[in-house]
Amino acid sequence: MLFFAIRRLVGAVFVLLGSSFLVFALCAASFDPLSRYYTLQPRPPEAFFDNLRAELGLNDHFLIRYWNWLTGVLTGDFGETVNGTPVADQLFQRLGVTARLITAAVIIAVILAVVVGVIGAVRQYKPSDYAFTFLAYLLIALPTFWFAALLKEFVAVGVNDAFDRQVLYTLGEETAALGLYADGWELWSDRLAHLILPTISLALLSFAAWSRFQRAAMLDVLGSDYMRLARAKGLTYRRTVIKHGLRNALIPLTTVVALGIGTLFGGAIITEQVFVWNGMGRYLLESGIGNNDINVVLGWLLVSAVFVVVFNLVADVLYAVLDPRIRLS
């Protein structure tokens, strides 16, 4: 088991290295740090461009630039933005904001998916099963931003009217500049109120697919021999379903969830854009691509690659731990 985990870990490091190379190649081909000077009127002299190229190291060979960037990243230096501020500080501050969103969304989505999936399987072909199935189909077919706008339009306005004060917020990750003077309960309750709607919109979309998956896994388990044996031994139905059924049916879901977190990272971009959250997503769109800033995009892509690779690793190891039948060869 330990060897398996270590081998996977080493493999993951190599995948990350390859991924960082690919990411660097993609960005080096896509972004020209000098492009914002090309359109200046009057156009700066060629000597200016030559100086800048030499200063930014653009004249070096591609592999040398990659090496310089990589060694920088490994020591925590993600380079500077076009405005001359270090990328690393901003990136990790933004990552914290997005991590709040993704963590909350994953927790809600998993709990809902398990509950709904199990209900759907236990009451297969009953009205509740059909209702949840229909709901899942609808949610899977919805574009994130349309659903989020729907939430803003109905849920936010409705709840706020019902309480007669602003309970749910539709813009931003916290009240502007509140972090400067408030802390403790005031700050976190404000953040929580800002968190609810984006979390729901992000969670419900993954929940739909996961609940279908959980339902299928549960149906598989319910039809197995050991469930019949458990019943034959005289256990109550409830106990067989929860102790023997659910625990086995959760194994496939862990993998799917671990792999899905990487996708959520991409999905969060849209959610953040709709709710004007200043997290990773908007950092990529506004500061990165909007400003044509190669270091920001590079840092972003690397962080997301780390996320995906780490959770792939977690999925592999979790699967082997949870299901001893998996051969570790």
Binding site: V15, L16, S19, V23, L26, C27, S30, G262, T263, F265, G266, G267, I269, I270, L284, L285, I289, V297, W300, L301, S304, A305, V308, V309
Partner: peptide, 10 residues
């Protein structure tokens, strides 16, 4: 390893 949406955006 990079979310598809992000590759498409870049």
């Amino acid at each position: 390893t990079v979310p598809l949406l992000v590759v498409l955006i870049v």
